[in-house]
Amino acid sequence: MRTVRAELSKLASLPAFWFACVVGVLVPTGIVLLAGRAAPRVDDGYQELAVGVLGAIVLGVIAMSSEYTSEGAESAGGRQINTTLTAVPTRGRLFLAKALVVGSTSFVLAILATTAVFSVLRLSQGVGVLALTGDDLARMGGVIAYWVLMSLLGYGLTAFTRSGIIPLAVLLVNSSTVSVSYLLTKATPLANYLPDLAGMRMFSRDLATDVELSPLLGGAVMAVWVAGLLIVAKLVFARRDA
């Protein structure tokens, strides 16, 4: 528990963490505000949140990459990870604590973003903010789960690369308006089982692809990807020279 608290305080003290929070809430809300729409569509709000997931991705990536940023030759090329491992030598525990912090902060961020997006959307459409059906709630739960899993995906990938730049570039470009995974579905139906696209089934009802996965199955596929990645990343993190 003390490890979790330490990791939380480290994460919250990064300027990039607050940047990620601002991006996560403002980008999807901004899209909703800017996009003048003629008729309500089935994926209104969810589509915007699928772009706003960038905030969660940045959060997951920097939680790990900040450990490996060199402080420069003046401090003997020192990196945060040296201090971290001195304080918490059990690497498995450290990795889990970090994952817990990443997952829970992105969970909170996702709730904030979802609330903001749907409040703005429903106010602009003149619908009651609180008029939620069971399906709405399930889809919102889906989008929140998607954010949490995407941030853990970024976290796990960064544990491999030890630098945020590749995971960030790959995940950022892939979350742009037309995702690479979606383009790949045109080459092979197997691309529907890539984590991001499978995870989108949890909330999107408007994905025009050949293979249809149910929301639960889509979420399960994504969760398996993320769990597998985290297990391998944890092994690498524990075995490798820091």
């Binding site: 990039a16 991006v23 980008v27 901004g30 899209i31 800017l34 772009v51 960038l54 940045v58 920097i62 990459s65 940023t69 630098s163 945020g164 730049i165 960030l168 570039a169 950022l172 470009v173 979350s175 742009s176 308006t177």
Partner: peptide, 19 residues
């Protein structure tokens, strides 16, 4: 690296298409 790359990528892939 990270701030520069993140800023430019965010602009190119998110903000610019949005605007």
């Amino acid at each position: 690296v990270l701030p520069a790359a993140a800023a430019l990528l965010l602009y190119l892939f998110v903000l610019s298409p949005l605007v």
